[in-house]
């Protein structure tokens, strides 16, 4: 039970991070200067109270802890669920569960792998199919050129996986934290769907704009 509350709370932290991250991404439409200065400003945030990059490191630690707690709780609960049904059904039919709700576990694994690739790709720039650059904007534009369509495709699939994960995750977290009532079931589901859609589309806009030449 503590595990589920932990998953709900850490999931909430990660959703807030995604919204902030999406906002940062969308700066790309304001041009190279805006995008790079946003990225630069993240490192200066909180100065002089915090050292250079201090805010970013606090965020990184919070996020890393959240991900570890989230994944650990998910793993323990998944093992428990598997143990709870040692003999499987021969016939299986879903009654009303959604695609989102039964891809939570493997979808989560895919998202974790994607996050690792994404950090190596655009944060540390160890993986740089389009060449390494100091400017985040140039990394982005080089990374999603049409000739690296396989990279873009992986991003698209992963972002859609994030969308599905959020669709059920937001609803589930709210229910776990006790927010659901019969009269609220529809509004909560709508909130989850809308948030998932906004975040999915918001994240798809940036790489697709580069691929299709809207951002150069």
């Amino acid at each position: 039970m503590a595990l589920k509350s932990a998953m709900a709370v850490t999931g909430g932290i990660l959703v807030l991070f995604l919204i902030a991250h999406m906002y940062g991404n969308l700066n790309v439409f304001a041009g190279q200067e805006a995008f790079d200065s946003y990225s630069h400003h993240l490192r200066e945030l909180g100065e002089p109270m915090l050292p250079h990059g201090g805010f970013l490191w606090i965020m990184r630690v919070v996020l890393l802890v959240s991900i570890i707690v989230h994944a650990y709780a998910a793993a323990v609960l998944a093992i428990r669920a598997n143990r709870a049904r040692p003999v499987r059904y021969q016939a299986r039919k879903r009654v009303q569960r959604s695609y989102a709700s039964y891809t939570m576990r493997w979808g989560g694994v895919l998202i974790a792998l994607f996050a690792i690739f994404h950090i190596l790709h655009l944060t540390t720039n160890h993986i740089h199919p389009g060449g390494a650059f100091d400017s985040p904007y140039e990394r982005l534009v080089a990374g999603f050129q049409p000739e690296f369509f396989y990279v873009t495709l992986f991003y698209i699939l992963s972002v859609i996986a994030v969308g599905f994960h959020l669709r059920h995750g937001i609803w589930s977290a709210l229910t776990t934290l006790g927010a659901n009532k019969a009269s609220r079931e529809r509004p909560l589901n709508i909130i989850a769907t809308v948030l998932a859609l906004v975040i999915t589309i918001g994240f798809l806009l940036t790489p697709l704009s580069v691929t299709f030449g809207l951002v150069e």
Binding site: M1, L3, K4, L77, R80, A81, R83, A84, R85, R94, V95, Q96, R97, S101, Y102, M104, H168, W171, S172, T175, T176
Partner: peptide
Amino acid sequence: DEEDFGGCTNIGECAA
């Protein structure tokens, strides 16, 4: 939990 039931993931098959 002691009876080895699994945890709820709010899928909703039960109520259905």
